[in-house]
Design a protein around this nucleic acid. Structure first.
Length: 345
DNA sequence: AAGGCGGGGAA
DNA sequence: TTCCCAGCCTT
């Protein structure tokens, strides 16, 4: 690599991190399982969002053993609102594997830790460096942004193969004596100083070693190509109450979007009917709320209403009646929680 | 290599 | 609106 500031960069970054780092719950420990939980929660998720989830999760599942065989519904309830729910399922599968195969000790090498469910190249490096102090790369979006500027790398970070360029850069730059602070320093710098728009270069501890700053085009990096348009789905959602005051809910399929989570009866508008799909005859419909819920790849346009039913036919396999107390225990996606909050129970 | 997979904060 | 966040899995 043609970069002449490696030593200065390392020292400036590590010293800045140790001086300015935020006080975050997962920085109170190097316990590998706790670091693992935090890193999975932080995937595609902001620090401020994760903090309360992490605290509740560690309180409920303080050790790998306590998580390994917890009921999935309770696990999903702990994850409710955090999104990307397969992360929770994969984390539990990985933790169970550690308990059963590695005597509850999280592996301390990339080959073994990478075999665990839900542990990709980034998470592997994060756990190895933060929990074990190993000089392993942990390249996330922050790191690619920071290093694209510092090293003036102009490859398209939207392409999967580009990650390798940055992994090799970190392998070259990383401070082997301070791997944890180095990796976290890169990410902290990306979060606080070297931000996507309007980077705070005048406050940057490595400004003197940043090629993009010298070239004056830091704000134009990294290069990232555009992405695709989203699909739209128009849905009618019915909160249906029977004569005993119970509510009808349906569990989503075990695979795909919002897997295994619970929702109120839902049909694609003008394509299906609640009555036919759920085998109920609803009456006394009252409008609740209309809103849009945006996923990463899809938008739901929801029209919701409440209704009552006198009698039903045979219910589908994943459909059943619940009391409002039971509903409070079910993992539900945010749009359903939003509708439920409008029902005066 | 491309697409599926949540939800929310910031500009 | 648009971006994108301490990414991973499947195809």
């Amino acid at each position: 690599m043609n970069y002449k500031y490696t030593q200065q960069f390392r020292q400036a970054l590590v010293e800045w991190f140790n001086r300015e780092k935020r006080d975050l719950p997962w920085r109170q420990t190097t316990e590998p399982y706790h670091i693992w939980v935090s890193e999975v929660m932080l995937q595609q998720t902001r620090v401020d969002t994760v903090i309360p989830y992490y605290n509740r999760f560690i309180e409920r599942f303080p050790t790998a053993e306590t998580l390994a065989y917890a009921p999935e519904q309770e696990l999903l309830k702990m994850w409710e609102g955090l999104g990307y729910y397969s992360r929770a399922r994969n984390l539990q599968a990985g933790v169970r594997e550690v308990v059963e195969t590695y005597n509850s000790v999280v592996p301390d090498n990339r080959a073994d830790i990478s075999k665990l469910k839900g542990v990709g190249p980034y998470t592997a490096g994060a756990i190895l460096s933060i929990a074990y102090g190993k000089p392993e790369h942990a390249v996330d979006g922050n790191v690619m942004r920071v290093l694209s500027r510092v090293l003036h790398i102009k490859e398209d970070i939207a392409l999967p193969k580009t990650r390798k360029v940055f992994e090799e850069a970190v392998d070259f730059l990383i401070d082997p004596e301070n791997a944890s602070s180095f990796n976290q320093g890169l990410m902290e710098l990306g979060a606080l100083i070297c931000t996507p728009t309007s980077p705070k270069c005048l406050l940057c501890p490595v400004r003197d070693y940043c090629i993009a700053f010298e070239a004056g085009d830091a704000a134009q990096l990294p290069i990232k190509t555009k992405k695709i348009k989203m699909k739209q789905l128009e849905l009618d959602v019915a909160v249906i109450q029977n004569t005993e005051g119970h509510y009808l809910l349906e569990q989503r399929p075990a695979e795909g979007l919002l897997a295994n989570m619970w929702q109120f009866p839902m049909v694609e508008r003008n394509k299906e009917s609640i009555d036919e799909k759920y085998n109920v005859a609803i009456e006394a419909k009252k409008p609740l709320m209309q809103f849009k819920h945006v996923f990463s790849h899809l938008t739901w346009h929801i029209d919701s209403y409440s209704a009552t039913v006198k009698e039903t036919g045979v219910l589908g396999e994943h459909v059943q009646w619940f009391t409002k107390e039971q509903i409070a225990q079910l993992p539900m996606p945010v749009p359903m929680l939003k509708i439920w909050s409008q029902v005066d129970v």
